[in-house]
Simulated scan of single mutants.
Amino acid sequence: MRPLWRCRACGAHWPCQPARLSLLVEYRKDRTALLVYLGLLMAEAHAQLSQLDGQLHHAGLHDRFLTWARARGPAEQVTMFHVNPEPGAQIHHTDPFAVPAGQRSAVRQFRGRLAAPVTLWTAPGPAGLTVSSTLVADGDPGRLLGLIDAESELWAAVEEAGRFAVAPLGPAHRQLADRFAGLFPSPGGLFAIDNWTETPYGPVPADAGSWAGCRLDGAREYGWGLLVEATIEQVELTADGDPLLHHRGRYHELS
């Protein structure tokens, strides 16, 4: 989010941890191109942040934008980790890109204490995004609200198509949720694996069961996100399944 250079999704200084992991995957075969790209963004950030804070230290921006992305030797190779590991996965016990505890937003920490259902939003294109801020309002017609990243590929696709699909995810979709949240590599593209059911509103996971087709009504900036308002035009229901919940930065299931 310019000119503050914070992530619209998490509020941390950009590039935040998910952004760094996504960039490392995207530029895994051309680290030089990644450094050039980050250098250009660093110059833009320096110019904009300097207008907000005349005491800005350029060395801090260099570490924030470039140091972490430089190629490393075998002894100090950065290994990507899975925030919500599947059983048997090998992970680090610490997050090398995490925001220090003393610098974390109190509002973000409060939000993390509210358990939220994990949903997948998709649109024709296709494009998709994991969303944990979805609210359904009953009525005639029913309405749907959600907070998403205004700079995401999903929003660009939704804005162009004027419609999108929302599917609640279950415990079996942990890795899928991480992939669409940018926390897990997706070689070949987000939709390259898993089975999908094509709908007029966007593809939905074949095993997701229930989903809703929505018509976009409008959107506006809300906090660091984009508040999307939509009308529910179609609902498909199957047998009930356990939901996947997000709480305190991790996935949970109903006990």
Rank of each mutant, 00 (worst) to 15 (best):
residue 254 L to P: 01
residue 46 H to W: 12
residue 76 E to Q: 12
residue 49 L to H: 07
residue 71 A to V: 06
residue 5 W to H: 07
residue 41 L to I: 05
residue 81 F to C: 13
residue 27 Y to H: 07
residue 21 L to K: 04
residue 65 F to M: 06
residue 12 A to C: 09
residue 202 G to Y: 04
residue 239 A to T: 08
residue 231 T to M: 09
residue 82 H to F: 01
residue 109 Q to H: 09
residue 130 T to Y: 10
residue 116 A to C: 12
residue 247 H to D: 06
residue 73 G to E: 12
residue 125 G to H: 08
residue 42 M to E: 05
residue 44 E to Q: 11
residue 210 S to R: 13
residue 99 V to W: 06
residue 198 E to Y: 14
residue 179 R to C: 14
residue 14 W to V: 06
residue 94 T to E: 05
residue 214 C to E: 02
residue 96 P to V: 03
residue 79 T to S: 15
residue 88 G to R: 04
residue 221 E to H: 10
residue 16 C to G: 03
residue 187 P to N: 00
residue 153 E to N: 14
residue 45 A to S: 06
residue 164 F to C: 00
residue 65 F to H: 00
residue 17 Q to K: 06
residue 216 L to A: 10
residue 178 D to G: 09
residue 34 L to E: 06
residue 139 G to I: 03
residue 64 R to I: 13
residue 28 R to L: 09
residue 220 R to L: 15
residue 183 L to H: 08
residue 46 H to E: 12
residue 234 Q to I: 11
residue 48 Q to L: 10
residue 66 L to D: 02
residue 211 W to I: 02
residue 44 E to P: 02
residue 130 T to I: 01
residue 168 P to K: 01
residue 244 L to S: 00
residue 124 P to V: 09
residue 6 R to A: 03
residue 65 F to T: 00
residue 107 V to T: 14
residue 101 A to I: 10
residue 220 R to I: 10
residue 127 A to V: 06
residue 189 G to W: 06
residue 204 V to K: 02
residue 110 F to E: 07
residue 19 A to N: 04
residue 133 S to H: 11
residue 197 T to V: 05
residue 125 G to D: 07
